[in-house]
């Protein structure tokens, strides 16, 4: 097991190196994949509790628009501050909507998250004097500690910053899943009655998880806003949320790395699909998702008991080290 300890560091080294090696466009896609990967990680985390959220676009958009507003109305250009605001927006919304959502599971949870994200979409669209409506808002390149990076370094700076943020949350989720609360989340999926009869509050377990997911997705939204430089209400649209679910499903919930790998794959495939099959792209997604749902024996969760489990965290059947 010792040798596996350094694997994440090697991976980090490779990813940092890629920042210099990759051509600008691919690096941009990878930056986006990392930012969106944070949202997908949140979806995967909720899946651990047996919940599917069709409304992660809510936090994603909230994080992005927090940055947009701060920049437009508060003159904020600092990347760290912008990210913190994105996190705060995600946290605030999760704290509010979580009060209602903690009571629901299954279909209700899925559809209520969807409804919440559509409410935000409606607001973003209607309040065009503030939000810019369908035109959205432009986001200027951020400053790092007071320095706006020159054009030729901006891409790599963004990439490294996003990578660092993703790394922080990845570690946080890793710790979380190994902790009692993380196990309680999976326990809720298995058997809520027993969770209550251990003296733990099921709704508190879900609420806390939901807060973490909100923060993470808010940060994901803020980061992608900073790297794309333009935000639109569609970020909150339910098909955006559907994409996050799709990627989570694609990557599987077997490892904390899976959402990012899935996300990277998705970004690259989408780029080409938009170009070559603009009208059959969704159909393709639909068929792939259907195949995953229908032909994965034991379903989505079965992915978690496959190879990645053995390699990285979330070890289901842990044995003492010899």
């Amino acid at each position: 097991m010792k040798s596996l300890r350094i694997l994440p560091w090697i991976l980090a080294g490779v990813l940092i190196g890629l920042g210099w090696l990759l051509p600008g466009w691919s690096r941009f896609l990878l930056t986006l994949a990392l930012a969106r990967g944070l949202v997908v990680l949140g979806v995967a985390l909720l899946m651990q509790a047996g919940l599917v959220s069709f409304g992660q676009g809510l936090f994603f958009a909230a994080g992005a628009y927090a940055v947009g507003f701060a920049m437009k109305y508060g003159g904020v250009r600092d990347a760290f501050l912008a990210t913190a605001l994105g996190a705060l927006a995600g946290l605030g919304i999760a704290a509010l909507t979580g009060l209602l959502l903690a009571r629901y599971r299954g279909i209700f949870f899925a559809m209520l998250t969807l409804a919440f994200s559509m409410i935000l979409y409606g607001i973003l669209l209607k309040a065009y004097t503030i939000t810019g409506g369908t035109d959205g808002l432009r986001i200027a390149p951020p400053a790092f500690l007071g320095h706006v990076l020159p054009e030729e370094h901006a891409g790599i700076g963004q990439y490294l910053y996003t990578l660092a943020c993703a790394g922080v949350f990845l570690y946080l989720v890793f710790r979380y899943l190994e902790s009692p609360l993380g196990y309680a989340v999976r326990a809720v999926r298995d058997n809520e009655v027993r969770v209550e009869y251990l003296g733990l509050s099921v709704s508190r377990v879900l609420y806390l998880t939901y807060l973490l997911v909100g923060v993470m997705s808010g940060v994901g939204g803020a980061l992608s806003a900073l790297s794309i430089g333009h935000i639109v209400p569609e970020l909150a649209y339910w098909t955006t949320s559907g994409e996050f679910v799709f990627v989570a499903l694609l990557g599987g919930t077997g490892s904390v790395f899976a959402p990012f790998i899935g996300s990277a794959l998705f970004e690259f495939i989408r780029t080409y699909a938009y170009k070559y099959a603009p009208y059959t792209w969704q159909m393709l997604l639909g068929f792939i998702m259907l195949a995953i749902v229908l032909f994965m024996p034991g379903g989505i969760w079965s992915l978690s008991t496959s190879i990645p489990r053995r390699v990285f965290g979330w070890r289901w059947f842990w044995k003492p080290e010899a």
Binding site: P180, Y183, A184, D190, N191, R194, L208, L212, W301
Partner: peptide, 27 residues
């Protein structure tokens, strides 16, 4: 009423954590 996807040991460990008031420890 048990947690069927967790290992038997993990079932027990969660109960012990709950008893010790560590149920909401996330670190």
């Amino acid at each position: 009423q048990i947690y069927s996807t967790l290992s038997v040991l993990e079932n027990m460990l969660l109960a012990l954590a709950a008893r010790e008031g560590r149920g909401f420890d996330f670190w």
